[in-house]
Design a protein around this nucleic acid. Structure first.
Lengths: 146, 146
DNA sequence: GGCATACGGTTGTTTAAACAACCATTCCAA
DNA sequence: TTGGAATGGTTGTTTAAACAACCGTATGCC
């Protein structure tokens, strides 16, 4: 017998992830309000490159939890915006390494500040220990299903 | 000073909602494996109609946290699948009331069972009281931002 | 060396989301 | 009562996700 039974009224909200959608929308609005022509999905790719530039597209698939075609097209669009450049790997010619442009490096500080601000607004009034526990639950869910 | 400060490494996972994406993908796979030609988004509309048939499109917008064009197109596709019918309201001719077909009523039991199964898989090993607290946090986040 | 297999990436197609612009109906207030 | 605002819904456009099919390169085994 499973250890968690659901009342039907609770079921839906867990599947749809309204909270993370709301966070993403809020962050997108901040980008738009600042005149940044950047989608959250594009930002999420830059985010991982700021941490570790020169990742392959496959690395970005793993990091962002997206499939290969999704990353191909996100990189396409980021290249059009001149925020990243595909550089074929010398060692393995199948691989594209993705590098940030100067323009993209300049966006890091501003957009990360907006992301932190958004999270602070989202978690207003939530005790930090509850946040930690919530993160653990969501991580466990992810691990259970991936 | 905000009551929650984020280390950068933790920030991304909260924004992307990997857990709910993983849940939705798992449920979609169950639909596909059962031969159901039904997307999660379409299912989410049916879900609210099973609870309360004859909702307007605007009601569905509020219930599903989607905008009007999204619901227009979801209802378009559900009508093509002959799972719902638009019925213009007698009282207010701007309004379409959306009614389930017999075919859609038959899907309820099967798909709700799959949804509950998916959630039980997702929350395997998570103490019920942690689930409750997690739901509260996510609800608070949603309320903070909506 | 040669061939099957795996891997990294791209392309095509369908579905959906966000946003702006639009139309018809209804409501309200001067 | 009529003209403007609000409401419910649709359409157009861009971006993205999922899935299948595909191509070129690398790997490993005989």
């Amino acid at each position: 017998m499973p250890n968690n039974q659901f009342k039907k009224g609770e079921l839906y909200s867990f599947i749809t992830g309204k909270a993370s959608i709301a966070i993403a929308r809020r962050l997108q609005k901040k980008f738009n309000a600042s005149g940044l022509q950047l989608t959250i999905e594009q930002w999420s790719v830059l985010y991982h490159l700021w941490k570790d530039d020169g990742k392959s597209q496959q690395d970005l698939c793993n990091a962002t939890f997206r499939d290969k075609p999704s990353i191909t097209r996100l990189v396409d669009n980021l290249e059009k915006l001149e925020l990243v450049k595909r550089v074929p790997s010398e060692a393995d010619r199948r691989i594209n390494k993705i590098y940030l442009t100067q323009q993209a490096l300049k966006l890091q500080e501003q957009t990360m500040a907006m992301a932190e601000e958004t999270l602070n607004e989202a978690l207003e009034g939530v005790p930090p220990e509850h946040v930690d526990l919530c993160k653990e639950v969501l991580q466990q869910v992810y691990d259970n299903l991936k």
